[in-house]
Simulated assay, not measured.
Amino acid sequence: MPLHLLGKKSWNVYNPENIARVKRDEAQAQAREEEEERRMQEIDAQRRIQILRGERPSTPPPPPPSHTAADPVFRQDRKPIDDAGRYRKRRRLAGEDDTDRDIRYAREDAAQANAKREELLIASRRDQEAEAPLLDSAGHINLFPRQARTSKPKKTKMQRQN
């Protein structure tokens, strides 16, 4: 690409607007990190004081969300699974670590699997009562059983002519 067109591109890394945007984003990220570090130090200091006083230390409060709704990377517009088949992304709860989240997911999945299994068992029992048997009177397996016919099938014109 000719270099004289580079300045017109929005992705140009040498564009002054893009350089300013990167510096602003880096400054915001550093400010967030410093605020989080300060907050964690205050919480640790309070817990140490409680331990030294002989009190039972309180559980640490859940960390604030690291992303905001205005952040383009983070989207909270996912809806629960509905009739249209849309998927709801599962998220970690406030104050929950990875292990607790995985255990909660496993319990939810197991409960959902058990409910589905029960539903299928009930449906299969209902279907077994309504279906014809797989074995006919001669003991042959029929994968597509039909109810026993009470009368002989009617012959068509083509069959009568032969």
Rank of each mutant, 00 (worst) to 15 (best):
Glu26Lys: 13
Pro61Cys: 02
Glu96Trp: 00
Val22Cys: 07
Gly7Met: 06
Ile141Tyr: 14
Leu121Ala: 05
Asp97Asn: 15
Gln50Asp: 15
Leu93Met: 07
Glu119Thr: 02
Ile103Gly: 03
Ala20Met: 08
Glu96Met: 03
Gly7Gln: 10
Asp77Ala: 02
Glu37Asn: 05
Phe144Leu: 14
Arg126Trp: 08
Glu26Asn: 13
His4Trp: 15
Ile19Pro: 02
His67Ser: 09
Glu42Trp: 02
Arg24Pro: 01
Pro133Val: 00
Ala111Tyr: 05
Pro80Phe: 09
Arg78Asn: 12
Arg101Met: 15
Gln30His: 11
Met1Lys: 09
Met158His: 06
Lys8Leu: 14
Asn18Glu: 07
Gln50Tyr: 01
Glu118Thr: 04
Asn162Pro: 01
Leu135Glu: 04
Leu52Tyr: 02
Lys116Leu: 09
Gly95Pro: 01
Ala70His: 09
Thr150Cys: 02
Ser137Asp: 15
Leu134Ala: 08
Arg146Ser: 07
Lys89Leu: 13
Thr59Cys: 00
Leu3Tyr: 10
His140Arg: 13
Arg104Ser: 07
Glu42Leu: 12
Ala123His: 02
Asp25Trp: 07
Arg149Thr: 07
Lys116Thr: 02
Glu131Ile: 01
Lys155Gln: 11
Arg160Cys: 03
Leu143Pro: 03
Arg88Lys: 14
Lys157Phe: 05
Glu34Asp: 12
Ala84Trp: 15
Ala138Val: 01
Ala148Gly: 04
Lys116Cys: 01
Leu6His: 10
Ser66Val: 09
Ile51Phe: 00
Arg101Leu: 12
Ala27Ile: 06
Arg24Thr: 08
Arg48Phe: 05
Leu143Gln: 03
Arg107Asp: 11
Leu143Cys: 04
Leu5Phe: 15
Gln128Val: 04
His67Pro: 00
Arg86Pro: 13
Gly85Gln: 08
Arg38Tyr: 03
Pro133Glu: 03
Met158Phe: 14
Ser10Tyr: 08
Ala132Tyr: 12
Ala113Asp: 03
Arg125Trp: 02
Arg101Val: 01
Leu3Glu: 11
Gln30Asp: 12
Glu118Lys: 09
His67Trp: 15
Ile122Asp: 05
Asp98Met: 05
Phe74Asn: 09
Gln41Thr: 04
Gln46Trp: 07
Lys8Trp: 13
Ala123Met: 04
Asp109Phe: 08
Lys154Leu: 12
Gln128Pro: 02
Ala138Phe: 01
Ala27Trp: 00
Glu55Tyr: 03
Gln147Asp: 12
Gln76Cys: 02
Glu119Ile: 01
Arg104Phe: 06
Lys155Asn: 07
Ile49Arg: 12
Ala123Glu: 04
Met158Glu: 15
Ser137Phe: 04
Arg91Ile: 08
Pro64Gln: 14
